[in-house]
């Protein structure tokens, strides 16, 4: 047998009573779960929106560096962010950011020791989804109202 690279491999290998090596079966994993239930969905979305927001920070970096570089570079950045694609990206980023923020507040509540009961978990999960939709729309209504 080769040297395992992953420490978890040690748990996967065993021997039969006659001494031959055997790979132990893996217990049921992702396929046995309903991935769309509130608990797992709200959890994985926190991670996905966090990664999306990480990519979104590139827009902030671009905006700041362009502003420091001069009028021409700034105009390019502003042209992109005002384009259909740019606005779509910014809208998606707003939704991801609000979701991650509200889900983060939910996590802080758990860290504080509250909200572990399943009914509470479901209601706070719903609040995060509804809050994301409401705050994303509110953000863009304000952006359009104050445009210019």
């Amino acid at each position: 047998m080769t040297t395992p690279h992953d420490a978890r491999e040690a748990l996967m290998t065993g021997r039969r009573s006659d001494g031959t090596a055997v790979r132990r079966p893996l217990s049921p994993h992702l396929q046995v779960y309903d991935m769309l239930q509130m608990t797992s969905l709200s959890s994985i979305l926190t991670r996905i929106t966090g990664v999306a927001w990480s990519l979104g920070t590139l827009l902030m970096v671009w905006w700041l560096v362009a502003a420091a570089s001069g009028e021409e570079a700034f105009a390019r950045a502003q042209w992109f962010m005002g384009s259909i694609l740019g606005l779509l990206v910014l809208f998606g980023l707003t939704a991801a950011a609000w979701y991650h923020t509200l889900a983060g507040l939910r996590h802080l509540l758990w860290d504080w020791g509250f909200g572990f009961e399943l009914p509470t978990m479901y209601s706070t999960g719903r609040m995060v989804f509804i809050g994301t939709a409401a705050l994303t729309v509110l953000t863009w209504v304000l952006a359009i109202v104050f445009w210019g």
């Binding site: 502003a67 009028e71 105009a75 502003q78 953000t139 304000l142 952006a143 104050f146 445009w147 210019g148």
Partner: peptide, 8 residues
């Protein structure tokens, strides 16, 4: 939001 639509 306050800066939206303004220039350089």
């Amino acid at each position: 939001i306050g800066l939206a639509g303004t220039g350089y």
